[in-house]
């Protein structure tokens, strides 16, 4: 019994396990309530639709882990969709169109990073500003109406080619998440980014180039928002002002649900992606059940709050159940993590 308990606790203590369990429970629940939910084509359809959310969540998670926050991702995604579609419509070849879209994102990422680091401004305020700049530029670009219709099949094929039963957009998304995860976990630069997110003061003392690392994180986030925009434009072949507005909040919610700490330094890319998976699954499930889409934001909000509380509770639970490990040092040498007081 005790072994089972401590085994369960250790299992729950593994990063990403609580969110995975939550997702499984939600998916099973919907599958039982709405038979059409588990239909393969419908799953593929809604996941394909939500590809941009996954991509910006990955980039945003990196920025949060680096100790920042990027609110501009949604608007930059919309703008990049616009610029890349515009390029394609005006006869540029597909590669150039993609580069225009990704480049738009990179430029915004660079501006975010540079302004935050060089002028020592709040991440929140700066990216809130660039959010509005990007959204405004999209309005100008679309000239108050929508951009519709490139005839470039290669460009359109970026998102909707079939690769082993999945769409190319989905495959690219998985590649992005895996690659970013590996960079964060397996490379020196990933380690440095995480360390500097824990606190810029100790990271500086340890000799890390905290400012530059943060700029890198914003570059990645911006570039990915641009890439997500390209995929969105390629799938819809139409872009209008205000597109992807509010995506940044879904991405923040997804990252937090996945256990990425807004304080920086803690969490991972794939856990954040799982958070996104949970959110979009909820959205799809409620849509199939005929719940008013407007209610979805309420449900999302409640889910975030519940999710965060449950996640923390689960972690505490796991810690209290964990049997004390044999310690070579006398137990007295280990200071318990006391409550920090005030």
């Amino acid at each position: 019994m005790k072994n089972f308990r401590s085994g369960a606790a250790r299992f729950l203590g593994i990063e990403g396990v609580p969110i995975l369990l939550a997702f499984t429970a939600v998916a099973i629940g919907f599958a039982l309530a709405v038979p059409s939910f588990a239909d393969g084509d419908s799953v593929k359809y809604y996941l394909n639709e939500e590809v941009p959310i996954f991509i910006i969540t990955a980039g945003l998670a990196l920025v949060i882990i680096a100790g920042g926050i990027d609110l501009s991702v949604g608007a930059v995604l919309g703008l990049s969709a616009g610029t890349s579609l515009w390029a394609s419509m005006h006869g540029f070849n597909p590669l150039v169109s993609v580069l225009v879209g990704v480049g738009t994102g990179l430029v915004f990422g660079l501006i975010n990073g540079l302004v935050i680091v060089k002028f020592r401004l709040s991440d929140f305020i700066v990216t809130l500003g660039t959010l509005n700049v990007a959204a405004g530029l999209l309005v100008v670009l679309t000239d108050h109406v929508q951009l519709v219709g490139t005839r470039d099949e290669t460009f359109l094929g970026l998102a909707s080619s079939s690769v082993g039963g999945l769409t190319s957009a989905m495959v690219l998304t998985v590649l992005v998440i895996v690659a970013l995860h590996l960079v964060l976990v397996k490379t020196g630069i990933g380690r440095r980014i995480r360390a500097s997110g824990m606190g810029s003061a100790p990271a500086l003392v340890a000799g890390l180039d905290v400012g530059r690392l943060k700029i890198y994180a914003y570059l990645v986030s911006g570039g990915l928002a641009g890439f997500g925009g390209v995929l969105l434009a390629a799938r819809l072949n139409s872009v209008q002002a205000g597109m992807a507005g509010g995506y940044e909040l879904i991405a923040v919610a997804a990252a937090v649900l996945g256990g990425v700490s807004l304080a920086g330094g803690r969490g991972g890319i794939w856990q954040a992606a799982l958070g996104a998976l949970l959110l979009v699954t909820l959205k799809q499930g409620f849509r199939l059940m005929g719940v008013d889409p407007l209610i979805f934001s309420i449900i999302t909000g409640v889910c975030i709050l519940v999710g965060v509380i449950v996640d923390r509770g689960a972690r505490r639970f796991a810690l209290t159940l964990r049997t004390p490990q044999p310690v070579q040092a006398p137990a007295g040498e280990l200071q318990p993590a006391t409550s920090k007081g005030r």
């Binding site: 490379t187 380690r191 360390a195 824990m198 100790p202």
Partner: peptide, 23 residues
């Protein structure tokens, strides 16, 4: 406040200033 990187392990705290030694 200035020394430890609290969420990193002992090993990660030791290597962080010279990651070249472990990469």
């Amino acid at each position: 406040q200035l020394g430890i990187l609290p969420d990193l392990s002992v090993a990660e705290n030791i290597s962080v200033s010279e990651l070249g030694s472990v990469t």
